[in-house]
Amino acid sequence: MTTSLRSLLFIALTTLSLASTGLLNTASAATAADLDQDSRHALQILYKANPVAETMSRTAKAVLVFPKVIKAGLVFGGSYGEGVMFSGSKVDSYYNTVTGSWGLQAGAQSYAYAVFLMTDKAVKYVRETKGWEVGVGPTVVLVDQGLAKNLSSSTLKDDAYAFVFDQQGLMAGVSIEGTKISLIKR
């Protein structure tokens, strides 16, 4: 079985698993207007909790915001959410985020995340790929509280910086490594 076929099968099983729990419907039922509003609100939550993110937004070429990602798993798991890419304050396009995982896991949670695309190269890559897998392509740095304290305009050297925030639920840890981000029509 090829790697792409295995990946497709895994994503299909993960989606079925999420759909059976009803969580997928709550993550994907948003209209474009709802996504716009929810994404703007999520950014305000992030900026209040982490002011360095707001500072980064002023120099970012674009910001991908996923205001509600639902993650569930029992050995096999997955996550799904929809979001917006902002260029400045304007909506550029809409994306979904899908992650599949396996291993010791049980539970469900929701969270939000934002990816600040700092270079034109990173924005072009996201726009032109049929599905951007985080960890392949532009370099993404996951910003935690410790790193956030040391970031400044002179230390921002990578293509993209990601913030995970507003976590709720009963599942340990969130990683965006291996997440696939794809353009959707709205």
Rank of each mutant, 00 (worst) to 15 (best):
A60N: 03
Q37S: 15
S39M: 09
Y95E: 01
A12V: 03
S182R: 12
S57Q: 13
Q145Y: 08
Y47C: 03
S17R: 09
A114S: 15
T26A: 11
V98G: 00
F66K: 08
T55D: 15
T139M: 06
A33W: 04
I184Q: 04
S28L: 14
A114T: 13
V174G: 00
A60P: 02
K61S: 01
R6N: 03
T26D: 14
A112W: 08
A29M: 15
D92M: 09
Q105W: 00
Q37W: 08
A106C: 08
A12P: 00
T31Y: 14
W132G: 10
L64Y: 11
E54R: 12
L35M: 14
R186M: 11
Y111D: 06
D158N: 10
K61A: 04
L23A: 15
T55V: 14
T129D: 10
T129N: 12
L8C: 00
G77F: 02
K68E: 15
I70N: 15
I11W: 01
K48S: 14
A122H: 02
F10I: 03
L46D: 08
L43T: 03
G81N: 14
M85Q: 13
T155A: 03
A42S: 12
V174K: 00
L8S: 03
T2L: 06
T179E: 08
A60K: 04
S20L: 13
A30I: 00
T31I: 14
T3L: 12
Q145W: 04
V69Q: 15
V69P: 12
D92H: 12
A114V: 10
S17A: 11
L64G: 07
E54L: 10
L24I: 13
Y80P: 09
D36F: 05
S7F: 00
L16V: 04
S154I: 01
L74S: 11
R186A: 11
W132M: 10
T97E: 06
G77T: 06
R40I: 02
A30Q: 14
T2V: 01
T31A: 13
K157L: 07
A160L: 06
K124Y: 04
I176C: 03
S28R: 15
L117W: 02
G22R: 06
A62C: 07
V63I: 15
S87D: 12
D36G: 06
A122M: 01
N96C: 07
I11S: 06
D158K: 11
V91N: 06
V126A: 08
T179R: 06
V164G: 01
F10C: 00
H41S: 12
V91R: 08
V134D: 07
S7V: 01
A30N: 13
L16T: 07
E177A: 13
G178Q: 03
M1R: 06
A60I: 05
S39V: 10
P138I: 03
Q168A: 15
Y47L: 02
T97I: 06
F10R: 03
V91A: 03
K185L: 06
G83F: 09
G173K: 01
G137D: 10
G107C: 09
D34K: 13
L24G: 02
S153N: 06
S17N: 09
D159A: 02
G137E: 08
V84D: 12
L147Y: 05
K121G: 00
K90L: 07
D166K: 12
A30C: 09
Y95G: 02
